[in-house]
Computed example of a mutant assay.
Amino acid sequence: MKISIITVCYNSDATLEKTILSVGGQTYKNIEHIIVDGLSSDNTVKIIQKHQDKIAHWISEPDKGLYDAMNKGIEMATGDIVGILNSDDTFFSKAVLSEIALFHTKNTIDASVGNIIQHKADGKVVRAYSSKYWKPEKLKIGFMPPHPSIFFRRTLFNTLGFYELGFIIGADYELITRFFLKANISWKYSGITTTAMLVGGLSSSGSSSYQLITTEIQKALTMNGLYFSPFKIKMRFAWKIIGFLKK
């Protein structure tokens, strides 16, 4: 089983090398690492060139944003399954892709969902984000599994489409809604902690970001013809707190 890992980047010279080494250091070797750079002006391309022996394909050219770059990477992919690893993130352990390959071999599924951790620059873990209790119906109240923990069968993109470019930070939500809820793909919780994410990403930067993703969640559900309660989506942070207290 070949696994394609897509990394998109732009002016990522402070973190990209760790990401590349994280993929190259996996115990599983049937990996295709694809890097899509948005024509960086720093030393990003030099870092890519330094590690070309670990990278299957890479390009550096202008794009229409994060999701356009992801689409380019997926179109280049030839693996059986596809995962996303951001340019400031790493795999949780050296065995992650071995575990993912084994899980997909044992289960006839379109996708697996797992867990991630979020950490500060000093390595301190600030959050463990699990998909254990997630179900597709929760998309209607604003909850999705951690995007980097999802591994998709590559051919799904050919039949169900790619990331929609009409979103700023919510195209991953729309794609997950389209795949898991509208198309009802087969999936299973893997229990695997896949990714260590550096906090401070595009969709985790304060109240303005919260308002934007709230709007884009509703847009994603509307595009896919799904009924939802705008109030419940706006109040999703409160539902998280209530759920935590119940546990």
Rank of each mutant, 00 (worst) to 15 (best):
I213M: 14
S205L: 11
L66G: 03
K46W: 00
W187Y: 15
Y28L: 01
I5L: 12
P136C: 09
E137I: 11
L160K: 13
M70E: 03
F152G: 02
N115F: 14
M223Q: 12
Y173F: 15
A101H: 08
L202Q: 12
S204V: 03
L202W: 10
L226N: 03
G65M: 00
S207A: 13
D110M: 02
D172F: 13
M70I: 13
L212E: 13
T90V: 13
H119C: 10
V23A: 07
W239D: 03
I141L: 09
I217W: 12
I48P: 01
T27W: 02
Y28R: 02
N11M: 00
W187Q: 07
G24S: 07
R153Y: 03
F152H: 06
M76S: 08
I31T: 02
M144Y: 12
L16D: 02
S149I: 08
T19V: 09
A238I: 14
S209W: 09
G201T: 05
T214I: 00
V125R: 06
A196D: 14
G79T: 03
W58C: 00
K135Y: 15
V23R: 08
F157W: 04
L21M: 05
Y10G: 04
Y189F: 15
T222D: 10
K2L: 12
E32R: 06
H33Y: 06
S60V: 06
E164Q: 14
S4G: 06
A171V: 03
I47L: 11
K94V: 05
K219C: 03
I109W: 04
K124T: 15
T194V: 12
Y189D: 04
F103C: 00
V45H: 06
N11E: 01
G65I: 02
T108N: 10
G206Y: 07
C9D: 02
D88A: 05
T108Q: 08
N30Q: 05
M197H: 15
L165S: 06
Y210K: 07
F143K: 11
P145W: 07
V45K: 14
L175N: 07
S209V: 14
S93M: 08
W58P: 00
L21K: 05
G83S: 07
Y67V: 01
R236M: 04
T105I: 00
A77Y: 09
L175E: 04
T78Q: 12
M1N: 07
N224F: 08
I116A: 01
G200Y: 10
L202R: 15
S190I: 05
L181I: 08
